[in-house]
Design a protein around this nucleic acid. Structure first.
Lengths: 148, 148
DNA sequence: TATTGTTATACTCTATAACTATA
DNA sequence: TATAGTTATAGAGTATAACAATA
């Protein structure tokens, strides 16, 4: 006999509960990120671009790979952010085809401010846990992230 | 003396680490949801509409409130999903202004299939934890969710 | 020929403002 | 007047396909 409920058979009851909680926490977190971005007249994607460029600069293809978007899409994103003075294209001197995208000072400042505001906006939720719980939760999340 | 690092002073080092993990897990989860949705020619928002309608039907305003979107936006979303036969509008007999939005059989079937596929797609990540860890993580996430 | 990036095109998502119909 | 919903409009995000420039 086949089990009646494939989902439970495939992933287990406990994992189903976890997945539901993961999806819910993701929507809450994404909503906060979107709101902070909107307060700076940025889309969530634009905010991601800024956050990525804080850690690593590079060409359009690299940026597209990090974002999981087509390079034509990234061209448009970079166009608009560049028009606002948040980032800049520079030509790659060793390869005339490539461009190098990096934050301007204004962009870096905005990215830092945004990161602080995100932390503050999420802190009411994260602060319901005590120190030990916070570290335990972080460790569990990081183990899942390391596997993906 | 003011502390040099406002972020740490405001939310604490442990909370900063948690917030970074939360943001990362949210992007991973959202990417999986978007991919599954795209495999069914749905946007992430359309998939949310279907998931919401699985649990609770209602009018356009209610739906807009759940989604956090303008009612005009929801009109368009419902238009397109209705055109594909995934959901239907019915007039509210007691109030001629209102409509009632609900899944069609095809829409309900797609929503169920999508939920199963999401669970399966996330299970490689969730299954790195053992049973006790899975339950502990779920409990911690749910406590944060209950506060928001 | 292959690679990097841009442009053209089309569609979806989204908000604001104006509108219709009902209450 | 107030409420539920739609429509008109405009801009951003997105992908596909075609293109230009460089390697």
């Amino acid at each position: 006999m086949e089990p009646q409920n494939r989902k439970e058979a495939d992933v287990g009851v406990d994992q189903s509960d976890l997945i539901e909680s993961l999806v819910r926490i993701s929507f809450v977190t994404t909503a906060v990120l979107s709101r902070i971005a909107a307060e700076h007249d940025l889309s969530l994607t634009q905010m991601r671009v800024m956050a990525i460029l804080r850690d690593r600069q590079g060409g359009m293809n690299e940026l597209a790979a990090y974002l999981g978007l087509e390079k034509s899409t990234v061209s448009g994103l970079v166009d608009r952010a560049e028009g606002r003075g948040l980032l800049k294209r520079t030509r790659n001197p060793s390869d005339g085809r490539g461009v190098h995208v990096s934050l301007t000072d204004e962009g870096a400042s905005l990215a830092l401010r945004g990161a602080r505001e995100v932390a503050l906006a999420l802190s009411p939720m994260t602060s319901v846990l005590n120190g030990a719980e916070t570290r335990r939760l972080t460790a569990l999340l990081d183990r899942m992230l390391a596997s993906s």
